[in-house]
Design a protein around this nucleic acid. Structure first.
Lengths: 110, 110
DNA sequence: TGCACTGGTTTGCAACACAAACCAGTATAC
DNA sequence: GTATACTGGTTTGTGTTGCAAACCAGTGCA
């Protein structure tokens, strides 16, 4: 498959910028709470909440709600599948970048 | 700015997989006709046409319609701005990948 | 005079990203 | 004790988007 065709078929669940930021941050943090994640990604609460729901539905992360004394706290962490997915994503991007650099037209381009 | 915040603010016009493929292919080809581009990206005609329109509106590529004998042909090429944009995009991704690898939490993450 | 092919564009629709509005609970002020 | 404001999120509304199917104009050929 041409590298360009692989680009068009990137996993959109992970590729979307906000979710890419969330997944990547969680890969670096192991676990993080909702508000910390909001700070480092710069997303609004509503936006972050929505993306978390989508990632949870895709089984890429888990949501754990508990209390720190009396204040509620939501802690996020990648699932095993989530970790594999985000690692694979970055490896794929790196691989594609190199493949594209090496690529030469196979048939008359114009 | 945290690298994650930079991820959330990626330029969506370029980041979208189909357009990323188109731009990246054109960066490698200099110029290409519509159908060649369709083959190497695997996009449907309608889809490709739509994305080309958006990129043209964003002044990232030019559309040139001429005839090869009697058959019409549409030739695409990046503008100077387009070339700078796609090169910058891949550099930014590479830079972010490295930044994320080096990143350590600044405040209590959870 | 049909029929199929080339080279695309337009249309219609479901999915999505986003922020504003909302909500429940807690601490603080008066 | 009762407003007020903050914390920690979720739900709702809406404009935008990605996508493929349908469409269209011109050409070859039988």
């Amino acid at each position: 498959m041409e590298p360009f065709e692989e680009l068009t078929s990137l996993d959109k669940l992970v590729h979307e910028p906000a979710r890419l930021a969330i997944m990547t941050a969680l890969a670096a943090c192991e676990r993080a709470d909702f508000l910390y994640l909001q700070r480092i990604t710069g997303l609004t609460k509503g936006n972050l909440s929505g993306h978390i729901s989508r990632l949870e539905k895709g089984e890429l992360l888990t949501v754990e709600k508990d209390f720190d004394g009396k204040i509620p706290r939501t802690t996020l962490a990648l699932t095993e599948k989530g970790r594999e997915t985000i690692v694979a994503y970055w490896e794929q991007m790196e691989r594609l970048r190199e493949a594209v650099d090496r690529w030469r037209p196979g048939e008359a381009p114009a």
